[in-house]
Structure formats: structure tokens, C-alpha cells
Design a protein around this nucleic acid. Structure first.
Lengths: 196, 196
DNA sequence: TATAAAAACGATCATACGTTCGTTTCCTGA
DNA sequence: TCAGGAAACGAACGTATGATCGTTTTTATA
């Protein structure tokens, strides 16, 4: 046998990405073998190399795609909002929504940072830093305008991000809590937490 | 060559644990080979098996020891404190202090949960759940006594824990922030966040 | 001081891994 | 319609891994 009927490059690549997300999310990057991955896609291991260059680059692509999407979407979510209070609310709502929607990507993006080669890791960390700076900027302006009061702005930024991102490790839409309640509970903690 | 002068079982085991913490924290469980580990301790790979049974059990022991210590210490930290407000403050202060002191263990304990065999993982998750319940209990009593107001107690528990535990991923005592400022900033976010 | 257990060596085993490659089949556009 | 690229197969390569084992040396006990 060789090339199978109906096979097409872009479709297979998409299937590889989807299967990669599933497997890395479930087992971790190191624990996922390319044989696992190929089996899930329905290919022989060697055939993966028609679509990816290395396992490492596959991981990088998955994380990088996610970071790019994150930046695009936060830009849209905050567009035209300037008042610190409203802006922070929009940030929280967006962050939670996005992290529920794409919890596998988000989880991999932080848990597998260590599996990236230094050069790749640096690129991702730069993107992450840019994202963190958005929240830090909101807090800073809020503090300057005497709308918020926090201890250290940078620490508060990390603390809030850790809190919001935490849902990726436990939330499932099938559970007791619906998305609205989830957002409301977090929103209260954050907004009251930074109040002056 | 064979048994080296001055070698002793307990000392070597302790060295294996310490080296294991370092390597797993830095590279991850899967990425740490027993050859790495042996080299760091100054042994031949096979000699590790005089002290550990399997790589998997080493990981379990590291995490399990940490969870047991965590329970002992939180018990001490909360002993004799009953008022919800004071109790929550004590919890926050303890959690942060412990997570700064033992950030490698804590990080491994969450990041490498997935590397544990199901049976081992279940035991750790049970211990973690018990710890979570301590915070949930504090919040619940506070809400019942109308001292706190939160959305959902369970969600708030996870959110606060995620926030506090987050420091393991970025905090280093060498940095700009001292431990006092760190605790103060987090304390403000938490205490204001749950205020009525 | 004799002896058994402890702790190390060093060689080795079977397996699993990422990746390469020659070949075969299918699809597309000139 | 047919030529060439795309996409798959399947076998293979070299390496690294977790683990085992017989042997040797040191330590501790009786």
C-alpha cells in the first residue's frame, strides 16, 4: 500500500495537530510517542514526516499558534474600552472564556514550556510576557487613577493570572458549575481584590 | 571497584531524593533518565536499585512525602485559631511560606501528577483533596457566619489555591520582591476578595 | 575476628524511541 | 492523458532507556 484514497495534506496536518493536542494534554509531550500520534491519526509513524519536520517543532507550532490566537482575541476583547474598571472586567471575562474554550492549548502552553528547546522557549516566553503586560497595564492605570489599590502591581498581575488560568486544571463543562457562575465567582474575587 | 568507602544507605537515599527533586523540577520526570540521576549522585545507574525499587516509586515517594509534610504543617499553622478571618489569614500566610520553601516539591506534585500510575495518582489526589477541603471549610464557615461573601465556595477554593500556588512557577527569593511584600500583596487580594 | 549483609561496580538485556529512506499509489494541472 | 509532485507505506537504523545480575568491596554484628 501507499498513498491512500482521499488523503490530502492540509487535512492530515490538521488531524495531526488535533491528535497532538489530545495526547500531549493527556500524557505530556515526552510521554507521547510519535507512534502513539501516528496511530491516533491513522498513519504509519514515518508518514508523519510528510507534514511535520520534528516532534519538537510540532510542539512549538501548537503552542505558538495558541499564543498568536490569544493575542488576537484579547485585542478584540479590549478594543474601545478605556475605563480601568470596565477594562479589567473585560479582561477577566475574556481570559476565562478563552481558557475554557481552549484549555488543552493553554495547559500545554504552560506545562510543556520546559519541553521546548531554549530558542523556542524564549519566543513563547516573550509572547507570554506581552500578554502579562496587558493585565499589568490595566492594573497600573487603575492604581494611577486611584480606582484600584494593590500591593505590588507585578505580583498582583501574576497572582490574578494564576488564579484565572487555574481553571484549566480542573474545570469541565459537564460538571456542576456552569460557565456563568464560574465567571461570576472569579469576577467577584478579582474585582473586590483590587478595590481601593 | 565495588562498595566505596564511607558509603551508607540512608545518606545515599537522601542524595537520590535531593538529586531527583532537582532534576525532575528542571527537566520533568520523563526527561530525567536514571543515568542523569545516577551521575548527579555519583553512582552507576544500576546502583540506584540498592535504594529505590523503580523510577515510578521514586516519583511517588517524593510527592507523597511532600503531601504528608504539607498536612502536618498546615495542622500546626491553624491549631487553636477559630475565627474565620484570622483562620483564612493564617492559611494564606502558611500556604505561601510553605510553597516558597518547598517550591520544587510543590511544583512536581502538581506538574507530575500525570506521570503517576493511576493507583499512585489516586492516593495523591485524595491527599490533595483533603488539603483543599481545609480551605473550603474555612470559607464555608466564614460565609455561614456572614463574615465572608463569595460566589461558589468550591470554585473560590480552587481559585484562591491556584493564585497562591502560582508563585511556585515564577518566584525566586533573589528577585526584586521580598517574602513579606509577596505575602502582603497576596493577602490583600484574598482577604478583600472574600469580603462581605 | 569471622561472617553475613549492605552498597557499590560494570556489563548487559530487551524494548521503545525519533527519524530516515526507498518504494508505491493517488491526485492534479498542463 | 500523462507526467510529476504529494502522501502514504513499511522496513530499518542508531541510540537511549529502565531494569537485571553476578561480582567485589566495605561495614557492622555476633
Amino acid at each position: 500500500m501507499a498513498r491512500t484514497a482521499g488523503s490530502s495534506g492540509p487535512k492530515t496536518l490538521a488531524a495531526i495537530h488535533e491528535a497532538g493536542l489530545q495526547l500531549i494534554y493527556a500524557k505530556g509531550y515526552d510521554a507521547m510517542s510519535l507512534r502513539d500520534l501516528a496511530a491516533k491519526v491513522g498513519l504509519q509513524p514515518g508518514s508523519l514526516y510528510n507534514h511535520i519536520t520534528t516532534k519538537q517543532e510540532l510542539l512549538f507550532d501548537l503552542i505558538h499558534n495558541h499564543m498568536i490566537a490569544l493575542h488576537e482575541r484579547i485585542g478584540e476583547a479590549l478594543a474601545g474600552i478605556s475605563e480601568p474598571h470596565t477594562r479589567l472586567e473585560a479582561f477577566v471575562a475574556f481570559h476565562l472564556t478563552y481558557h475554557i474554550e481552549r484549555k488543552r492549548e493553554v495547559f500545554i502552553g504552560s506545562a510543556e514550556l520546559r519541553s521546548l528547546e531554549p530558542k523556542n522557549r524564549k519566543r513563547i516566553i516573550k509572547l507570554r510576557r506581552d500578554y502579562e503586560d496587558i493585565l499589568a497595564g490595566i492594573l497600573e492605570r487603575g492604581v494611577a487613577a486611584k480606582k484600584f489599590k494593590v500591593g505590588d502591581v507585578r505580583v498582583s498581575t501574576y497572582a490574578i493570572l494564576a488564579m484565572l488560568t487555574g481553571i484549566c486544571t480542573w474545570y469541565t463543562p459537564k460538571g456542576r458549575i456552569d460557565q456563568d457562575a464560574l465567571i461570576k465567582t472569579h469576577m467577584r474575587l478579582v474585582m473586590q481584590g483590587v478595590e481601593g
